[in-house]
Amino acid sequence: MTQEEGRCIALEIHRGNRGAVANLVAAYKDRLFTYAFHMLGGSDDALDVTQEAFVKAYETLSGKYDSERCRTLEIRPWLYRIVRNLALNRLRSRKRMTGAVERMKDDLQEQAFVPQNDQARAIRKALERLGRESRELIILRFIEQYTYADIAAVTGSSESALRGKVYRALRRLRKIMEDDPSGL
C-alpha cells in the first residue's frame, strides 16, 4: 500500500466506510501480527493485540480525528505505533502475572507458528533470546524492511541513536547465532 493509498483509506474510514477497514486489515494483518508476535515473544496475545489495534485504528479515524488529520496521516508507522503501545501495555501487565504459566503458554504457541525454513527458524530462535528492544529493531529493520526514518517514526528514537542501537542489536544477535551451531 503506497502512502497515497494509505491516506485515501484513512479518509474512507473516517467517512464511515466499513469496507475500507476490511481493506486495511487485509493489507496489514500479517505484518502487524508478525510484529506483535515478536514483540510479545510469541504468545497468543499477539492475535488479541493485532485485532485490538485495528479496532482502535477504526475508532480513532472515524471518531477522534478530523478529515484533515486523516488526509495527512502516515498510516503505516501509525498502525505500528498502535500495535507497539498495546504490546508494551501487555508486557507490563504480564510482568505482574506469574511468569511460569506464561512461559508454558509461549512454548505451546511456538510449535504452531514455526516457519518451515531452517535458516528462518535459526533466526527466529535467536530472536527469542534477544532482549525486547533489540528484537524489535531487528524485526522492523530486517523483517519489515523499514528505513531508519520509519523506525524512528514508530519507536520515537532518533535516527542517529538508532544506528548505534541497531548495530548493537545485530552484534548480540550474531553472538547468539554463532554460539548456537545450528545458526547461519
Binding site: F33, F37, A120, I138, F142, I143
Partner: peptide, 11 residues
C-alpha cells in the same frame, strides 16, 4: 544473510 532470510519470518 539476515536481510535475505528475514522476510521468510513474516507470519
Amino acid at each position: 544473510h539476515l536481510a535475505a532470510a528475514s522476510p521468510k519470518l513474516i507470519l
